[in-house]
Simulated scan of single mutants.
Amino acid sequence: MDFKNITVAGSGVLGSQIAFQTAFHGYNVSVYDINDEALEKAKKRLNGLKDVYAEYFKDEEKASAALKRFTFSSNLKDAVKDADLLIESVPEIVEIKTNFYKELATVAPEKTVFASNSSTMLPSQFAEYTGRPEKFLALHFANEVWKNNTAEVMGHSGTDKQYEEQLIEFARTIGMIPLHILKEQPGYILNSLLVPLLNAGQTLLAKGVADPETIDKTWMLATGAPMGPFAILDVVGLQTAYNIVSNEAKHNPAAQPIADLLKNEYLDKGKTGKGSGEGFYKYPNPAYLDPAFLKA
């Protein structure tokens, strides 16, 4: 493996975290998004992450140095011109990912390995559009990557195993713990466990069984977990949650009420999660972090 230049495509909540984690560990990172407005938001996120990393790792100098390793472009060809590895973190919508890979296939250098950070979709769904299925696989990160430092590496049936090994080694070099998925699995390991929990919580809410705080409190009290499903959804971002459940609703009508609730009661009101200051909870001091939250 001789990766030096990394392109991260998609600069949302998780894309920005992946970019900063990579730059923090010494790589040059080209950040790609669809327009200059999105890139300006990315720069603000990355500046905010500088402070997060400085505090978490107690290393202001290293965090500041990471900011100097970024370049930004809304032109995909320019963004990948030197890329040894491209990590895709575009929205969880099939059409968007398909169109992205079709364009990427025409502009990326032959050397570039493609890795998808998709939370729920399989590499095999898009391999034919990449133009290099043998160099295409999944590299999935958990939210708040600096502390939840898992990196799930999963190929498809056409992936050359050497690239799985390269991605495992790359993950180690950026401070992650690589987790090798031996067989394609929707949701990998993490989301195979997590998504049913989040869906169950949202279903209880959509049916009017209980409010978000009661559902979270129940889970936290009964299991000792530090967060309940709605606190987790706020961190993930409600737009991502909506994209996933809307896709599910296409073949599972039971998911439609959840999608409607997320859109009508939260997204349409600007409540997109922790990043916007409000989702199911209000930030920076959400109720679930109050010591009294779990007391009688």
Rank of each mutant, 00 (worst) to 15 (best):
D2G: 14
T7V: 07
A9Q: 02
A9P: 00
S11T: 06
V13W: 00
S16A: 09
Q17W: 00
Q21K: 05
Q21F: 02
Y27K: 04
Y27R: 07
N28L: 05
V29Y: 00
S30W: 00
V31A: 09
I34E: 11
L39P: 09
K41V: 12
K41W: 10
V52D: 07
A54T: 01
Y56H: 00
F70K: 05
F70W: 04
T71D: 02
F72W: 13
F72G: 02
S73D: 01
N75Y: 08
K77A: 15
A79C: 00
A83K: 01
L85H: 05
E92A: 10
I96H: 06
T98A: 15
F100K: 05
F100G: 03
Y101K: 06
E103R: 10
T112C: 12
A115Q: 03
N117E: 03
M121D: 13
M121H: 15
P123F: 08
E128L: 11
R132Y: 15
R132V: 15
P133N: 10
P133T: 13
E134I: 00
A138F: 00
H140M: 00
E144V: 06
V145S: 03
T150W: 07
S157K: 12
T159F: 01
T159S: 06
K161V: 14
Q166L: 13
L167N: 08
A171V: 02
P178C: 07
P178T: 06
L179K: 12
L179P: 04
E184K: 03
Q185H: 09
Q185M: 15
P186L: 07
P186C: 09
L190Q: 04
N191H: 09
S192C: 03
V195Y: 13
P196Q: 12
L197A: 12
L204G: 09
K207M: 14
V209M: 11
E213Y: 12
E213F: 13
T214C: 05
T214G: 10
T214E: 11
I215V: 12
D216F: 07
M220V: 01
M220C: 06
A222I: 04
T223H: 01
G224P: 01
A225G: 08
M227A: 07
A231Y: 03
G237N: 06
T240Q: 05
N243Q: 11
N247Q: 13
E248H: 13
A254V: 11
A259W: 05
A259T: 09
L262F: 09
E265R: 14
E265Y: 12
Y266R: 05
T272G: 08
G273R: 05
K274M: 14
G275E: 10
G275C: 00
G279F: 00
G279N: 06
F280M: 02
A287N: 10
A287F: 08
A287V: 12
D290V: 08
P291C: 10
L294M: 09
K295M: 13
K295F: 05
K295C: 08
A296I: 07
